[in-house]
């Protein structure tokens, strides 16, 4: 079963709606027993970095997820804040992240004329090594809502988004893990293809 982790932040219904559209059943839960049984995990989320980490802690999910992802190698897809939490840390907060990706988050530089939050569709390109973009449609575009983005180009970077000419890493992939800054569940057929790739290629 595909499990969408509910830790109190974000629009989970729309992810389930899109999975249903591509014929995939999923459950939305914070129940540890159900999460332990999951064949694949989706870590969504909208909100602040510290609130996200605190909620995961309060639900006693951090260790369960670590074993599931890093030891059992269960496939996981982080979306938006979910992807950010998979990194080491963020300028937005003081809590350490889950640290599965060696990456950190910085705020968009308003001095460069970038309004914050970045809330728009953006052209998104991929490296050939990306599994999550396998056979993606031409000119892929995704819907983004975020104030922080991945700093520099860490190892495991596979996707890049563009905001008014400023390019930033918007996707990370390594082994059983993928994280994307944008919202595939709100990005038409591009998002559907991405979710399908996660289901089939991870």
């Amino acid at each position: 079963m595909i499990v969408i982790i509910n830790y109190g932040l974000g629009n989970l219904g729309s992810i389930q709606n899109m999975l249903k559209k591509i014929g995939v059943r999923s459950v939305i839960t914070s129940d540890i027993a159900t999460i332990k049984e999951a064949s694949k995990l989706i870590l969504p989320g909208v909100g602040s970095f510290d609130a996200g980490m605190k909620n995961l802690k309060e639900l006693n999910l951090i260790n369960t997820l670590r074993i599931k992802i890093l030891e059992e190698k269960t496939p996981v897809l982080g979306i938006c804040l979910g992807m950010q939490l998979m990194c080491q840390k963020s300028d937005e907060g003081t809590e350490p992240g889950l640290g599965w990706f060696n990456a950190e988050l910085v705020r968009f530089n308003q001095a460069e004329g970038l309004k914050v939050p970045h809330m728009n569709w953006a052209d998104t390109r991929s490296l050939p090594s990306s599994k999550i973009f396998n056979n993606m449609f031409e000119d892929p575009r995704f819907y983004y809502v975020h104030s922080y983005h991945i700093k520099d180009t860490p190892a495991d970077s596979t996707l890049y988004g563009k905001y008014n000419g400023f390019e930033f890493v918007s996707g990370l992939e390594r082994d059983n893990m993928a994280g994307v800054q944008f919202h595939p569940e709100k990005s038409h057929r591009y998002g559907m293809k991405l979710l399908q790739n996660f289901i089939e290629n991870f």
Partner: peptide, 30 residues
């Protein structure tokens, strides 16, 4: 509507409480 839309959707009309907003967002509205 939420289950038919694979893009961001804004809903307005008759909202007057936090509970209503929470419920609407949970249905898959952005």
């Amino acid at each position: 509507i939420a289950s038919e839309c694979f893009m961001p959707v804004c809903y307005g009309g008759g909202i007057s409480s936090m509970d209503q907003i929470r419920t609407i967002l949970q249905l898959g509205i952005e």
